[in-house]
Amino acid sequence: MERARKWVQGVWFFLVNGYWAFPWTRTIYKGPMKVVCSPGLNCYSCPSSTAFCPIGTLQQLLANIRFSIQSGQHYFGAFVLGSIGMLGAVFGRFICGWACPFGFFQELLHKIPSRKLSIPDQLRWLKYAVLLLLVIVFPLIFVSNSGMGQPWFCKYVCPAGTFQAGIPMLLLDPNLRGAVGWLFVNKLIIAFGFTTWSVFASRPFCRTACPLGAFYALFSRFQLIRLQLNKDNCTGCGVCHKVCPVDIKFNENPNSCECVNCMKCMTEACAFDAISVEVAGFPMFGPDLGKTNKCIWPRKIQKI
């Protein structure tokens, strides 16, 4: 199952970064596919990007909301919120675990042999503050004399933007190199800080600072597809805690907002058939999937 997940992550990476003519065109993709929402964090200023980043787009729309209302257009982000809201309602943080290019990048970095560290639990709240303040509130309230706001998260924090767009654009266009200033240095420090942290800790950006992860986390209790704990089968052995990349105690909190739904607990840990996947209440996949390569669809309902 873990190998399948890596393949899915790789496929998603290439789906949302499918424009490989950029070394010759020396610019970003400008085709109609860019109206499609990238499910994961993927900078749309990346030369290879073929979809729009919901976090970047939402900030831009909110930053320009006064201008858009004045000009008779009412762009308040309904299309973007609708897109990620539908994804969140169906998949929740399955997207973080299966379809986010930056999550995939952090997972690969974490494979580098080193001493592994945990992340303080309190830091998880930071990502909600990032979502609320840097993505929504600051772009709305801090505006210039002309009424234009700024995309605070993209401008000051986003490490995905630095790696996917900032560095590649500087390499592609030498004319831009003169414009590099403290802002870019600040973003480089943040990006390389998270890169280094990813080697030692699992998915530090997803767990502490990702606003898109914070948004999808709001759906954890309600998402259509989710992991389910069968309490009758759970022995409380705690093996699921040991394999979890985000340090969740699944048997104690099966709907944790931190869970990226990688399903390692189900396929690599639980030997008691206590964890399964359910869709709207219907059990679908069980541990049998990982052990026998057989999909049970729908899963045979247990008799009691």
């Binding site: 610019t27 970003i28 400008k30 109609p32 860019k34 109206v35 900078c43 749309y44 200023s45 729009f52 970047g56 787009t57 831009q60 729309l61 858009s68 257009q73 009412h74 762009y75 982000g77 309904a78 299309f79 973007v80 919120l81 609708g82 700024q150 995309p151 993209c154 401008k155 933007g161 630095t162 767009a165 900032g166 654009m169 500087l170 831009l176 414009a179 590099v180 200033g181 802002l183 870019f184 600040n186 973003k187 480089l188």
Partner: peptide, 25 residues
Amino acid sequence: GVTLNEPARVLEQAKSICLSCIGIG
């Protein structure tokens, strides 16, 4: 959002490089 023609605005944004957004300029 579609009714308000927001996708056209999204496409317009996504087609242009916002240099200050990516830390350049």
